[in-house]
Amino acid sequence: MTDDQLIQRIETALEAEQDQLEADLPAILADMEGQTDELVREHPAVMARILGRMEAMDIASFVSANPETADQFQELLWSGMRVMVERNPEVKEQINEDITTNFEADDCPMEGHLKVREEEELVTGGAGQLDDADITITGPADVLVGLITGNVDPIQGFMQQQYEMDGPVQKGTKLAPIMNSLSEQVPE
């Protein structure tokens, strides 16, 4: 399938009702695997629409029903983040420390990680956990996804106990502005 065909297929799926989209999404995410960076770069608005529709889903139920899709979904999320950091000096300005973070959903089998690297001014992430991460964030899957897409403000969410954070408080307060500026870059 060419990129254009894939984008056409995605756009068609995005027109569908939520139930139909949830049924189509595993296959779409599977087709996107390995080329998400390129798709995000060339079609940011379409990718943002996918994320927007996924925010309306019950992420925990979806991931529980489609466990293999959790990694592909995270791949899309993190590709988006990588590209946004590459393109946005505002995000780079917030990076002044190395920070490693693990994410762990407490309502479905979804684990991910985030690396902030000062020297390269990079934010990268993906499925699975890092050894000895500075910070571990635990909470419902939709809150974790919301943290990345901007639906959940990292500090407000923490103060309202929507999720828990383990690790040095100083690292956590450095991570929050980076996540905030990342989520501000997600196209509406």
Partner: peptide, 17 residues
């Protein structure tokens, strides 16, 4: 004036906890 906003705004402005 929501406390969680106050914390968020203060940290975004460069304050430590």
């Amino acid at each position: 004036n929501r406390l969680s906003n106050m914390f968020s705004n203060a940290i975004m402005a460069g304050n430590e906890m």
